[in-house]
Design a binder for these strands. Sequence first.
RNA 1: GCGAAAGUGGCGGAAUUGGUAGACGCGCUGGAUUUAGGAUCCAGUUCUGCAAGGAGUGGGGGUUCGAGUCCCCCCUUUCGCACCA
Length: 831
Amino acid sequence: MAIREQTHRKYNFKEIESKWQQRWDEQHLYRAPELPEKDNKFYQLEMFAYPSGDIHMGHFRNYIIGDAVARQQMMLGKSVLHPFGWDAFGLPAERAAIQRGIHPSEWTNKNISVSRATLQSVGISYDWEREICSCDPDYYKWTQWMFIQLFEKGLAYRKRGFVNWCPEDKTVLANEQVVDGKCERCGTEVVKKDQVQWYFKITDYADRLIDDLDLLPEWPENVKTMQREWIGRSHGAEIDFTIEDTNEKLSIFTTRPDTIFGVTFMAISPEADLLEQLPLEGEYATKVAEYKRKALAKSEIERTAANVEKDGVFTGKYAINPYNGERVQLWVADYVLGGYGTGAVMAVPAHDTRDFAFAKKYGIPIKVVIQPDKNTVLHIEGMEDAFTEYGPMVNSGQFDGLSGKEAIEKVTEYAEQKGFGRKKTNYKLRDWSISRQRYWGCPIPIIHCEKCSEVAVPETDLPVLLPQVEDFHPKGRSPLADVPSYMNTTCPECGGKAQRDPDTMDTFVCSSWYYLRYLDPHNDKVPFDKEKAKRWLPIDLYVGGITHATGHLIYFRFFHKFLQDIGWVDCPEPAKRLFNHGMVMDSKGEVMSKSKGNVVSPIDLMKNRGVDISRLAMFFTAPSEKEVQWSDDSVSGVEKFIINRLYPLTKEYRGTSPDLKHFFNAKGLSGFENSLYIKLNQTIKRVSEDYPRLQFNTSIAALMELVRDYDSKQITNDVFNDFVILRIIQMIAPLAPHLAEEMWEITGHAESVFKSPWPVFNPEAIVGDTIEIAVQINGKLRDSIKVSADAAQEEVEKVAFESKKVESHIENKTIIKKIYVKGRILNIVVK
RNA sequence: GCGAAAGUGGCGGAAUUGGUAGACGCGCUGGAUUUAGGAUCCAGUUCUGCAAGGAGUGGGGGUUCGAGUCCCCCCUUUCGCACCA
């Protein structure tokens, strides 16, 4: 009876999974050392998670990918750091507070408990001892510390300016949080608002953020391209025009100084401060004011829509071109961006598409100053659009004939000599606006004093605790502004009465340095220990969605570089390799979302089929970087494989405890055994090569083949039999950890399978004794022949020519040549 | 509009460097076993053809003994940027 039970051991995933989760926890299997050896560590990180309470398929996929890598790295003998934590500040908690009348912290903590429990039930190899939470004062103390470091270096500053404003959430948004002119969170159209805001001077790092992308060969090319374009470096010149009546400077940035003689008007952005300083007169003043009001009221969408006709209004003023003294009209136009360059442009209708359209509309002159080549003359009358390419300069005085790069250089040099211009590099990247008029965020540790102006809270007074408030309703100012006990304080410098800054920080600040806190999460003296950072950094593999390409992943690189500059980290980049997993869609290919009601919960799936089968199903469906259309049909294949094939292997185990430290000694194996041994080594090779590519679908396929070929009845060598079974268990372990541990225990191991060394293939046993060679005639496959693995070309040819199929294709033909690719193919060319 | 990536059976997808296209799985077909099965096992399954054969990796050209893979043109899809002067 006992034997019967043994041989019919059922795959009881519920029992197995909870048993091992408990054991792992008891054994502290995932506890990372404080100080690993520098060349034997692996820092595996998945992106910081917002605790929304329910984990969906996308999270599930993200985490199991990281988990498989971390577990294999353990088996490769590395000290693995695989931590997790919560990006817990942010709007949803505040919304929940408004809707349900509970405090954001309560809502957040509840969600964290639920999410943590779910993740624990997925059996992810996190070192929970290192769990962090960004809304915890022990954490945000150091976020405030980071702010102060930036502030002291002049990299955190306040300025008035036009900001993206969401009328629904009543808060400021960073450029990255505006998608298609709408608020990323609530979809409301974003408008411009004039406000004083805190900024981080990320633009100081623009060059390094671009240039150091070259230090990241293991980052996906598309992410690097997106970052380069987002930062948007362009080289050109700044040239000072003058305003006719006032003699004030009007500087503009241009990448095309070679078109300077073609300027026929200038245009200023309605947002530009310059505009305020212009002494406008009479009806012009009214018209401009009216235009400005309308332009600012327009949403980002209306203003930036591709086909919107350009419009503007004449200011009645004129500017003087310093190169030729020409007097040109000065316009206000909302196609000119306030935040880029100087907020004004020189307009060259003949050679810029936008200026062309504008000039045509308002009847402004067009002047050709660049020709396609020496012999082609452009005529304004025939021009349908601007000519924007490079070519020789004309009508440009002393510069006539120069073209392209040389022209640009000469024209710029001239301005430098005369003192009205200079070389200039501009960026699309703006300084990072980080203040938010919201409650649920990290308080800005600044005190405003009438005498001493902005003063950082002394480090000893950190953290500046978020006070309790009653009313979270957005009013357009921070809820903290209405808490006198918070706001009123004394100046750390002069001791006089002072006010705290009422704003909180963008949550992207919290998530810009969290990967460092994991290294030393309980340190109450410093944000993290430098020596620990030295040992653990950089992150070896950073897994997350592509959505963060231009937001988080730029901020996080910026912080890292800043910390390098002030001596806290010693490497230039935070993450060596970045991996973007594909999205999980529903079976119709639509994004899963609550509002569509098409969300498939991994929780139900795991309850019904088990964690390991759910994991394998996700892995097997597609390679990790590809989008998947999730359907429960994906499960049946791997489920059958596990229940009917793989798990029952334990009952074939013969209890010999083979030596796993060395290659198996294949001498004396039978024919079947030998070919299985070859298959085993081929599988180890394939799987070992698939893991670093995160191509687990093919690893599983390879294991399916191996298990299919395994046949206990044909194996007489007990040790060999057991050797094969143990190797299979090891190879599937990072993908299906509970199952593998259970099998590992059944096969007599007291210690975790993740402490066993990852299998190594025997390079001398990946090719069998006989191999198949394809025989082609003129490149077309005609037959396939079997020869011994070490057969020479003559031998192969001999066998090939004996083939009837080959013969029928070369009859009455002349053999021109024969190409033999060793071990693969013989191609006979005939005529 | 600009930039990038990708198009392979009924479906998800294999195929490091040019070298037997369709591994593995789903689905489907047939068979075995079974009281029964939507369980299990075995066999088959790119299309076409009775067969020998022929065609075949979005379409068209090219390089090569040989192209899913390399080059040129076109089409489609997805993603990113979208007045950055």
